[in-house]
Design a protein around this nucleic acid. Structure first.
Lengths: 358, 358
DNA sequence: AATTATTTGTGCGTATGTATC
DNA sequence: AGATACATACGCACAAATAAT
């Protein structure tokens, strides 16, 4: 039953153990081939085969006429970390990258970057490509996280290969995984609560339907409304996906948009991007912001700061999130049992897009 | 005198030649070890050593009980491309990345990303790290390109190792290199020309002193002024570097800034970022934009679109630049003699920050 | 389903070459 | 110059995996 392990593999294992234990110190000479033969009573060829294994692993360097030396960088080996993000045009993109990069480059590791364009097919290809690139860990932004993903098998492959994965911003609820996110339900409660505090009662919403963040922000929205004994009028809620955002603000959809908003005094927008689109469309809708319609949104990005009027928006952790993701991932590489599931508690940055009705 | 080449190396060379010639077709079985022994009248051990060389080069795969197969991806091997950018907070950053990524991932290559934070020391470390990462090519944004770089030796190393390098956005003038840039002199002429056309004669400038782009934009600025028989008053020109930008707009430097601008009807700003800072500082300076002071700048970014007033700005190629860089680099990997030095001709996007005095 | 031939993998012994200290 | 250590090379035997019969 016991599968026979080749001698040279056993001896390679023994050598590797001793290198990692520190019995053979880094930079020093390894035991010579001849000594190895005597010690284990093996042929020279077998000894050489064993050392060849370590050489291929970059653990040792052979120098003819001199000896075999243990590579200096044992344990401190440069890791290759995959970073798979959805969308370069998203304003969280540079933040996430710089947060991750800061931690990894400080420790001499490197980043293999890929983009999924928020498409599951591309995500699949990129995951396969990253697998082929021999990454030691992966930081990834889930694609269309609210919908069933066809790529969970690959994520499970990573787990089976003991390659740790950390999700940032979004994650797949059906997958038992590590993630670092904003507390989107709470974020939405905060923003909705602010609108209610300012005297708004007829509040609409524009949410993203394919991202789990959309579902969570909707949850917080509904949650807060009912908590304050307000009713949710579903006619005031609009849903979009990456593919239909422009369509939602197009001329064809204008009546729908107009009708949904005409009944509201305030709207909660899924993101600053959406809020900005709404502000830009407001003249056409005959609505002055915030006089006729107040807007609150998410991400507290440069858009919310520069828009006219500036937009009241819930904060996003920014580079810190990438930071924590990278730190956690490195810990998981060291200690495979390490887990990380973290949600940041956001705050609200109040600007000029909400009118006080009270 | 002739250095004796080991038999197994010779035979490995012979095999490699035949693989690359197509004599042994990809995907097919290589000649068996036994046949190789007979053909060259060598021992099996030597034959195995020869094949081991090719195996290490990933040219062949051995399958016990079956045979040795030539790897399918000879020549079409996944390349590892280094991408070293300066600053993630710069608005060209996502554009450059997505342009590069689009081309490379379409061909199955991968990107090793690093950031230099526009610091030469960090650039050096990252270049060394990229060298260790075995990249097949490098796309890089030069750090402080107007100043003497201590890292040109590494760039020369890359050249010596036949690893092609393409600079984007900026390059080192002292290095004979491939680059893809915006035509900054022309860009500056266009912007300055527009200010002059709108009747401005007292025109100031705020330029970046450590980037070659700063020097080129200054050149275009001066060039156009003198071309239109206007004089350059050096009191109206301010210089900054990444480290001193905030200082320039600080309270301590306020008198300097105020004095330089009080004499102008228009200012040419090095970037939308600077223009925005100036707009934000304008109330403190007692200047209404564009009524008292007109502003033109560079990059045509989201900032210029959203600022109040919106900023007249010279266009930047955007993702196209990264696109061309990646395409060129791949061509250089294929054909080492290939060169690329390209400058985009920009245009001007006119917005609300320039007042017509005529 | 079992056998057989083929092919690569593991292992031993020996000898000589070559680089380094 | 000599000792030492790794590199190359020959020959043999058997194990393990695969494909074809």
């Amino acid at each position: 039953m016991t599968k026979t392990v080749p001698k040279y593999i056993e001896i390679a294992d023994w050598l590797r153990q001793n290198i990692q234990d520190g019995t053979f110190k880094t930079g020093e000479r390894l035991i010579t081939e001849h000594s190895l033969c005597e010690k284990f009573n093996i042929s020279r060829h077998t000894a050489r085969s064993a050392i060849a294994v370590l050489e291929k692993e970059d653990l040792v360097v052979r120098r003819q006429g001199d000896g075999t030396y243990i590579n200096l960088d044992v344990g401190a080996k440069q890791k290759n970390i995959g970073l798979l993000l959805t969308d370069s045009s998203c304003y969280t993109f540079p933040n996430t990258i710089s947060g991750v990069e800061e931690v990894l480059s400080a420790k001499g590791h490197r980043i293999t970057l890929a983009l999924s364009q928020n498409k599951v097919e591309i995500e699949r290809n990129q995951l396969l490509s990253l697998q082929a690139a021999n990454i030691d860990g992966l930081i990834v932004e889930a694609v269309k996280s609210a919908l069933a993903s066809p790529n969970l098998d690959i994520y499970k492959d990573f787990a089976a290969q003991n390659i740790p994965v950390v999700f940032v911003n979004t994650y797949y609820p059906r997958l038992d995984c590590n993630y670092i996110i904003n507390d989107d339900v709470e974020a939405s409660r905060i923003a909705t609560g602010h609108l209610i505090n300012q005297g708004h009662q007829k509040i609409g919403g524009i949410f993203k339907l394919d991202s789990i963040q959309g579902a969570l922000r909707y949850e917080g929205f509904v949650n807060k409304l009912y908590g304050q004994n307000l009713k949710l009028d579903e006619h005031r809620v609009l849903w979009y996906s990456d593919e239909t955002l422009d369509y939602l603000f197009s001329n064809e959809q204008f009546p729908l948009l107009s009708e949904a908003l005409s009944d509201c005094t305030a709207v909660l927008c899924y993101s600053d991007r959406v809020a900005l689109k709404l502000i830009e469309a407001s003249p056409k809708l005959g609505l002055r912001i915030p006089h006729d319609l107040s807007i609150a949104s998410f991400d507290d990005s440069i858009l919310s700061r520069l828009a006219t009027p500036s937009i009241t928006s819930v904060t996003h952790p920014g580079p810190e999130m990438g930071n924590l993701a990278a730190t956690s991932l490195l810990k998981m590489i060291e200690i495979p049992s390490h887990k990380m599931q973290h949600a940041y508690t956001p705050t609200l940055t109040i600007r000029d897009s909400v009118r006080d009705l009270s």
